[in-house]
Simulated scan of single mutants.
Amino acid sequence: MTAIRHEAEVPLSAAGRRFDQTLAEMFPDYSRSRLTAWVKAGAVTLDGAVAPPRQLLHGGEQVRLEAELEAEVASQPEAIALTIVHEDEHVLVLDKPAGLVVHPGAGNPTGTLLNALLHHDPILAELPRAGIVHRLDKDTSGLMVVAKTLPAMTALVDMLSRHDVERQYAAVVLGTLVAGGTVDEPIGRHMGDRLRQAVRDEEDGKRAVTHYRLRERFRAHTLLQCNLETGRTHQIRVHMAHIHHPLVGDPLYGGGLRLPKRATPELTDALRGFRRQALHAERLSFTHPVSGELLSFEAAPPADFEALMVALRDDLAANGADED
Rank of each mutant, 00 (worst) to 15 (best):
D88A: 08
V91Y: 04
R129N: 10
P104V: 05
H134I: 11
A116D: 13
I123G: 00
V93D: 03
A98E: 06
H90P: 08
L82C: 07
Q76D: 13
G99E: 09
D121T: 13
D88W: 15
V146F: 04
G105F: 10
I123L: 15
D95C: 11
H120F: 12
P122S: 03
T110R: 15
P109D: 09
G107D: 02
H86N: 07
H86F: 14
A130S: 10
A147R: 11
Q76Y: 05
I84D: 03
L82F: 07
P109N: 14
I80C: 09
P109S: 12
A147Q: 10
T140G: 04
T83P: 12
E126G: 08
A79L: 13
T140K: 05
N108E: 04
I84F: 06
L113M: 13
A125F: 06
E89S: 13
Q76K: 15
V133N: 01
V145H: 01
V91F: 08
I132G: 04
A81K: 15
T83A: 15
V145D: 02
T112S: 07
E78Q: 15
H134N: 09
V145S: 01
P77D: 06
N115M: 12
A116Q: 14
I80G: 07
G142S: 05
I132E: 00
L92Q: 11
V101Y: 01
I132V: 11
D95Y: 00
L143K: 00
A106N: 05
R129E: 06
D88N: 11
L82P: 06
L114N: 06
H90M: 09
L92K: 07
G105Q: 09
G107Q: 02
H134Q: 08
L143N: 00
V93L: 04
A125I: 12
A125Y: 00
I80P: 05
E78S: 10
R129Q: 12
P77I: 10
I80R: 11
I84T: 14
P122K: 10
M144Q: 07
A79P: 13
P122E: 01
V102Y: 06
S141Q: 01
A147Y: 10
D137Y: 03
A130T: 00
I80F: 10
I123K: 13
V133M: 01
A98G: 12
V91H: 03
L117K: 08
G131F: 05
P77Y: 09
I123E: 11
P97E: 09
